[in-house]
Computed example of a mutant assay.
Amino acid sequence: MIRGGKINKYLIVSGRVQGVGFRYSAAQKAKELQLSGWVRNKIDGTVELEVEGDENKINHYIDEMNAGFNQFIQVKDIKEITYQEKGYNNFSIK
């Protein structure tokens, strides 16, 4: 596990995460926390994203995601893989 500084996490989120504003909410929260990366829907009903930045901010971001970002989102599971920073400049919705 990479500790401290800037990291990249690849996440696959399952639950009620499509058609409920998840991607928009994920992008807004990432921008609020000054994180970069991307988010997109997958054909199997999950959402995948890469988020990059300060490790503590990413952990806070994942906690917020688990809480559901909004009342319509229900996160059941988040699978995550940690990588070294890749150098994204902003956060985009794909």
Rank of each mutant, 00 (worst) to 15 (best):
D63C: 03
G21E: 10
K29I: 03
D54Y: 08
I81W: 12
Q28Y: 12
W38E: 02
K29W: 04
K86C: 14
D44C: 09
I81M: 14
Q18A: 03
D77L: 04
I62N: 11
N41W: 05
Q18D: 11
V20D: 11
D54V: 01
E85V: 12
I78R: 01
F72M: 11
F69V: 09
M65G: 04
N56L: 03
F22I: 11
G45K: 00
N8S: 15
A26G: 02
Y24L: 12
G4V: 09
G45I: 01
T82Q: 13
I81Q: 13
A27C: 11
V39R: 00
G19I: 09
Y24K: 10
G4C: 11
S92T: 12
Q74I: 02
A30V: 04
G37I: 02
K76F: 04
K57R: 05
E52Y: 15
Q18M: 03
T46F: 03
L35D: 07
D54R: 01
K42A: 15
N8M: 15
D63T: 15
S14G: 07
T82G: 10
I43E: 12
I7H: 09
A27P: 00
E32K: 11
L33C: 04
G21I: 08
E32D: 14
N70M: 02
E55L: 07
K31T: 09
A30C: 06
F22W: 12
E48C: 08
I12P: 10
Q74P: 10
S36N: 10
N89Y: 14
G45Q: 03
A27K: 05
D44A: 09
G15V: 00
N8H: 14
Q71K: 15
G87N: 10
S25D: 09
M65V: 10
E64Y: 02
N59D: 04
F22V: 12
E48H: 05
D77C: 05
G87H: 10
F72I: 08
K31V: 06
I93C: 07
L33H: 05
K86E: 14
N66M: 06
E55S: 09
T46R: 00
L49D: 04
G21K: 08
D63M: 04
E52K: 06
I58Y: 02
N89P: 11
G19F: 07
G53T: 03
I62K: 07
E52Q: 11
Y88I: 01
R23K: 01
K76G: 03
